[in-house]
Amino acid sequence: MNNVLLTSTALADTIANLFRGIGDLMRGWVLAIPLGVAKGIFIAYFILLIYWIIKLPENEVTLALDNGKIVHLRPFALFSLATIVVIYLVF
């Protein structure tokens, strides 16, 4: 049993060593990013989505319900995303 455990640890170590070099390098890059910039990445992602929603064709964001009413989904989607931007600016 002990031999099996030692072998599995050795195998795991071998595989881990294959990834560790590149992993540590990438971790170093990400660690160098200040938290303020990291927060900016999150907010940029939301703003990118806001831009995408604004650019969607009208027929993909305007819907006709069974009762004939037209519903515009774009303002609701933009409101949700704008609220998230505010939350990430606060916290």
Partner: peptide
């Protein structure tokens, strides 16, 4: 943990919707 909703749900659901 709020990220799981504010990042992990809100924007993704909007992408999913359209």
């Amino acid at each position: 943990l709020g990220n799981y909703d504010w990042l992990g749900s809100v924007p993704v659901m909007i992408v999913g919707a359209f």
